[in-house]
Amino acid sequence: MASQGTKRSYEQMETDGERQNATEIRASVGKMIDGIGRFYIQMCTELKLSDYEGRLIQNSLTIERMVLSAFDERRNKYLEEHPSAGKDPKKTGGPIYKRVDRKWMRELVLYDKEEIRRIWRQANNGDDATAGLTHMMIWHSNLNDTTYQRTRALVRTGMDPRMCSLMQGSTLPRRSGAAGAAVKGVGTMVMELIRMIKRGINDRNFWRGENGRKTRSAYERMCNILKGKFQTAAQRAMMDQVRESRNPGNAEIEDLIFLARSALILRGSVAHKSCLPACVYGPAVASGYDFEKEGYSLVGIDPFKLLQNSQVYSLIRPNENPAHKSQLVWMACNSAAFEDLRVLSFIRGTKVSPRGKLSTRGVQIASNENMDAMESSTLELRSRYWAIRTRSGGNTNQQRASAGQISVQPAFSVQRNLPFDKPTIMAAFTGNTEGRTSDMRAEIIRMMEGAKPEEMSFQGRGVFELSDERAANPIVPSFDMSNEGSYFFGDNAEEYDN
C-alpha cells in the first residue's frame, strides 16, 4: 500500500510504541512475548500442572481467558453494579484439565481477579502490559475465525453469508486497541457500523446529549479505520460520505453494504499476525530463551520457528480426527482463516481442507461434555516452508469459486491468482447506482469489472525454506488448481455463540 510509510507498523501498534527502528520493534515485541511466557509459567505453578498438562491447549485457553477477564475493567465495573446470582464479580476462573488415573478430569478453578492481575503485572515488570493482553485477544479471535462461520451475524446486519472472507476479527472485544483495529476485516468494521446506525434509528437519543457526542466521535473513528483499509480513492470518498452524514440511517447502511461487497474484489488491507497460545510461549521462556534479547516478529519467520520446536497437546472428542484438529489450530496460529487453501497447503506441506470436510468441533470443551471418553493427542503445528504475512489485500483475480465463501483475504505475501467468483459478486451490483453516491458507485463498479483474471497478485513473492531466515531465496510455489480455494466452501461450520 502506498501510504505504508505514514502508518505505524503493526509491531508498533502491538507494543504501543512511538516510531521505533526494526531492532527496537523486535525487542519490544519480544518483551511482550516474554511477559506472556513468564505469566503462563507462574500460572502453571499456581495450578500445580504437570509439564504435559501445561502444554494442553484447553488449559492455555482457560488461563488466557482468566487474565483477560481480570483486566476487563468495563465488564468488571458492570458486574459490580449489576450483581447477578451466583456470579462473584471479583473472581474469575474456568475449567482446568488434569490427568488422573490414566483419565482426563475437569476441575473448575476460581481465583481472585486481583490475584491474577498481581501475577500478570509481576510477570511483566510491574506494568499492565496491555500489548500482551491484546495479543491474547487476537489469538482467540484468530481461533474463532478458523472455527466458526459468522453466517447468522452477517444475515442479521443485512449482509450476504458468502462475504465471510471479510469477517476477520469479528469476535475481537471493543477494547483491543490499535492492534485489534489493524486485524479487523472490512466486513467486521461494516458490521460494527451498521449495528451502531441501527441503534440510532431505533433509539432517538442515541446521537443526542453528552453521551451522543461520545457516540458520534466513536462512529467517526470507526469510519476512519474502515476508510484506511480501502485502497481505492472511490471507496475512500464513499467512506467520507458515510462519516460526514448528519443523521446516519438506511442510506448509510446501503452504502456500507455496497462497500463491503466491493471489497470482495477491490480488497481492503487487513493486517495478519501470528499470535500463538500462551502454552507455546511459556515452555520456550522456561527453556531459557530470551525473546527480548533475541527479538521477535509476528509477521516473519519467528512464529514458524517457534511452532517448529513446540509440543502442544489437545483434548480430542471420541469421533474427532486429531489431524483435522491440528489443521484448525495451525490455521489459527498463522492467522489464515480466509487465505486461499492452495497457498496454505503449499506452505504447510500437507493438504489443507475446507472447514466442512474437517471432523472436528471447536477447541474448547463445553462444561456439560462427558470427560470419560476424552483422549488427548499432539497437535501437528509444523510447516514445510515459511512466508511473510501481508497486510495488503493483493490485486484481484477471477477463479472458480464456491457456493460458500466467494473470495479470499490473503494472509501471506505469496504470488498467486486470487480466487473470487466474479459473476456471483457482480450480480449483486445491478441497477442500484442512484442517489448521492452514484458517481462513486459507478466508478467502483467500473474498477471491479476491469479486474483481470490473468493478473498475478504479489508478483514474484515466494515462500522460503525454514533454514532461509533472511528470506534470501524465494520459492514461487505451484498450486494444484483442481483443489478448492475457499475454506468455508459450501460450508456447515458451527455458528459462533458468545
Rank of each mutant, 00 (worst) to 15 (best):
M1S: 09
A2V: 15
T6A: 12
S9N: 15
E18W: 04
E18C: 07
A22V: 15
T23I: 06
A27N: 07
V29W: 06
G35C: 09
Y40N: 05
I41A: 12
Q42L: 05
D51G: 14
D51Y: 04
E53W: 12
R55G: 05
L61R: 01
S69V: 03
A70P: 00
D72F: 06
D72C: 09
R74V: 09
R75W: 10
P83K: 03
S84C: 13
K87R: 10
K91P: 02
Y97H: 09
K98G: 01
R99K: 15
V100W: 01
W104M: 09
E115S: 12
E115L: 03
I116N: 09
I119L: 10
I119Q: 06
R121W: 13
A123I: 06
A123T: 10
N124V: 04
G126C: 13
A129Y: 01
L133Q: 06
T134P: 03
T134S: 15
H135S: 06
M137N: 06
M137V: 10
S141K: 02
Y148L: 01
L154R: 02
S170N: 13
R174G: 11
R175T: 06
R175M: 12
T188K: 08
E192T: 05
R199N: 02
R199W: 08
R199M: 12
N205A: 13
R208C: 02
T215C: 07
R216S: 08
E220H: 10
C223N: 08
I225C: 13
K229S: 07
F230K: 07
T232L: 11
R236K: 15
A237R: 06
D240A: 13
V242Q: 06
V242I: 13
R243H: 10
R243M: 12
R246D: 01
R246C: 09
N247T: 09
A260S: 15
S269D: 09
A271H: 03
C275E: 07
K293F: 02
G295W: 12
S297V: 06
F304A: 14
L315A: 08
I316W: 01
P318W: 04
N319Y: 00
H324G: 08
H324N: 11
V329F: 08
S335A: 15
F338P: 06
E339N: 05
L341G: 08
R342N: 05
L344A: 02
L344V: 06
S345P: 05
K351G: 01
T360E: 01
V363S: 03
Q364R: 00
E375Q: 12
R382W: 07
R382E: 06
S383N: 13
S383C: 13
R384Y: 04
A387T: 10
A387R: 01
S392F: 04
G404Y: 03
Q405P: 04
I406E: 04
A411F: 02
A411G: 01
V414Q: 05
D439H: 10
D439P: 03
R441A: 07
R441M: 06
I445E: 04
G450T: 15
A451M: 05
Q459D: 02
D468M: 02
E469L: 10
R470F: 00
N473G: 00
V476R: 11
N483F: 04
G485S: 10
Y487W: 03
F488I: 09
F489K: 02
G490Y: 04
D497T: 13
D497A: 13
